[in-house]
């Protein structure tokens, strides 16, 4: 098992390195002198010279890359020229709201998706199965941000059940925080729930056709026992993998849904930074999101090996 985890981690490293080189080169690909870009439009000549020295733009590209990585590991990501704050401080205040939203939408996705998939999978063509198909069709047509606007209109504006904007930290005031989180989390999680449900349905339906399920039934076990103890166990392995793979989708969804509900977070930070051409902020946000995404894929691989001994042998 340890050897398997080790091998997977080793495989993930080159991908992470390539991706970080991509993010690093981003600033160098922007037409123009990076130092002048970072200094902004009304910068003086001294500012540009200072920034050039700070970024080590006089060094070779590989040296700059190594220096940049080292700075990130030290938590020093430079100073945002648009807001004059250290980028690391901006990130520290933007990460918790996005994390809250991602975790909450994950819960929504699992709570809706897995049971719906199981119910549809154990009895194909039953009422639950049709509910599942209908649900999938709706979420395909109505993406998270459109769904978010619809809910905002119905539940916040019309019925006034939920706040229309903002975020409250879960630590400061859990109830108010959940009140603000509910709609954004549903908007982000609903689509992922459909992916999970479809996947669960397929694997359960496959497993239910196996001989061991027939044997379990022939032994006279109750149907719920057959489903929970025999079928679920064998069908959850691929589902766990898919759950980990959805983290990227959830993060991307959260970035847009934050805009719908005017929530602070990484998405708003990045969008504002792109519009203000605040490159250091975009670069730092991207490297965090990409690392999380690659990490989630790695976690999926490892979870798969953990749950299914056959994978480890390969």
């Amino acid at each position: 098992m340890l050897a398997y985890v080790f091998a997977r981690v080793l495989q993930a490293i080159p991908v992470l390195v390539l991706a970080s080189i991509g993010v690093f080169l981003m600033l160098r690909l922007v037409p123009g002198d990076p130092a002048e870009l970072l200094a902004g439009q009304d910068a003086t000549e001294e500012d540009v010279v200072r920034i050039r020295a700070q970024l080590g733009l006089n060094d070779s590209l590989p040296e700059q890359y190594i220096g940049w990585l080292a700075d990130i590991f030290r938590g020093d990501m430079g100073v945002s020229f648009a807001r004059g704050q250290p980028v690391s401080r901006m990130l520290r205040s933007a990460i918790p709201p996005t994390l809250e939203l991602t975790v909450a939408s994950y819960v929504v996705a699992v709570v809706i998706g897995i049971p719906l998939g199981i119910l549809g999978g154990i009895r194909p063509r039953s009422g639950w199965d049709w509910t599942l198909s209908g649900y999938t069709l709706i979420t395909i047509g109505i993406p998270g941000f459109v769904f978010g606007i619809l809910m905002l209109w119905i539940f916040s504006v019309r019925l006034d059940w939920f706040p229309t904007f903002g975020q409250v930290s879960i630590v400061d005031d859990p109830l108010s925080s959940l009140h603000h989180l509910a709609l954004p989390a549903i908007a982000t999680g609903a689509g992922v729930a459909a992916v999970l449900a479809r996947y669960t349905r397929t694997t359960i339906a496959e497993v239910m056709g196996n001989d061991f399920v027939r044997t379990a039934r022939a032994k006279g076990l109750t149907e719920s026992h057959v489903v929970v103890r025999h079928a679920l166990r064998n069908s959850m392995i691929p589902v766990v993998t898919v759950m980990a793979l959805q983290v990227g989708g959830l993060l991307g969804g959260a970035v847009i849904v934050e805009q719908v509900f005017t929530r602070p977070g990484l998405g708003r930070l990045m969008v504002n930074a792109i519009q203000a051409r605040d490159y250091l902020v975009v670069q730092s946000t991207l490297i965090i999101l990409v690392t999380v995404f690659i990490g989630a894929n790695l976690a999926a691989d490892i979870a798969y090996g953990f749950l299914d001994p056959r994978v480890r042998g390969r």
Partner: peptide, 15 residues
């Protein structure tokens, strides 16, 4: 493929 679609798009729009 390591970049999810939306992030790749955001990176390109930044450049």
């Amino acid at each position: 493929l390591a970049f999810p679609g939306l992030l790749a798009a955001l990176a390109i729009l930044t450049i």
